[in-house]
Amino acid sequence: MPSSPQTIDALLTRSEQIAGLTLAEIAAHLGVQLPANARKEKGWTGQLIELWLGATAGSKPQQDFPHLGVELKTLPIDRNGRPLESTYVCMTPLLNARGETWQSCNVRNKLAQVLWVPILAERAIPIAQRIVGNALLWRPSAAQETILKQDWEELMEAVAFGQIEQLTARHGEALQLRPKAANSQVRTKAIGPNGQIIETLPRGFYLRRSFTESLLRNYF
């Protein structure tokens, strides 16, 4: 397994080495088998890139390269360079929302510095033939952080005041809340409309496609 890069430059060099390669070529370099089950594609792609780049966090609630302060996000795109889906950021705390602040929240921590790795991943392209694009290291501009902070504060205020069931993916300009669970049977505790504890689907913070598309457009 590749060691974790010790500098940002080393991380960027490693990402440049796979630009233009197919997932099959990267898997062959690493001695990793392609998934037989197409439904497992999504998680597998991210894990393959993590392995190549030497990410250390796994599923822990911290950045993928904590010693560099960098989060890794693979971004499936179409042939026009447009993201195919929204991007998961982290889980949403549903019970202790009132104690959270933007300065110390996990969303801000995860998005402080992101290495985006675009992957040409239209559904018609078999997983083996999907191609890795040029990675980009991104830090939110002051304007972008203002939008993210505002979205986060509005969403967390609604969660804190028992409005979790009223929130939909339509809320938020750049950041949205969506169910994040293996299936609809999974339940977690949250604050209800009268301050009582209720059972609901776990939620995650996601970046809208429009946000990541503008980010890519500004860079490339």
Rank of each mutant, 00 (worst) to 15 (best):
G133F: 07
S3G: 03
P61V: 13
R123I: 03
S86M: 08
A10N: 13
L75N: 12
L137I: 05
A38M: 12
I197S: 10
E199L: 13
S86H: 11
G192M: 02
E85N: 11
G43Q: 08
T212S: 09
T101C: 02
I198G: 01
A128R: 10
I77W: 06
L94A: 06
E16C: 02
E25Y: 02
T87N: 06
K149V: 00
Q163R: 13
T13R: 09
V114A: 11
Q129G: 01
Q129D: 15
R130A: 05
L115C: 07
S86C: 05
E165R: 10
E16Y: 03
L148V: 11
E173W: 05
F211E: 07
T212P: 05
E41H: 12
R79V: 10
T56E: 12
A190E: 03
Q63Y: 03
T22L: 13
F220W: 14
E41D: 11
F65C: 07
W152P: 02
E25R: 08
L177H: 05
T146M: 04
K180Q: 09
L111P: 06
A181S: 11
Q144L: 00
V32D: 12
A169L: 02
N106E: 11
Y88W: 15
V107M: 10
I49T: 03
A121F: 02
W102N: 02
T7H: 06
K110H: 02
A28Y: 12
S141H: 14
G46K: 06
I191E: 04
E100A: 08
I77Q: 08
Q166M: 12
V89T: 04
G54Q: 15
G69T: 04
Q62Y: 04
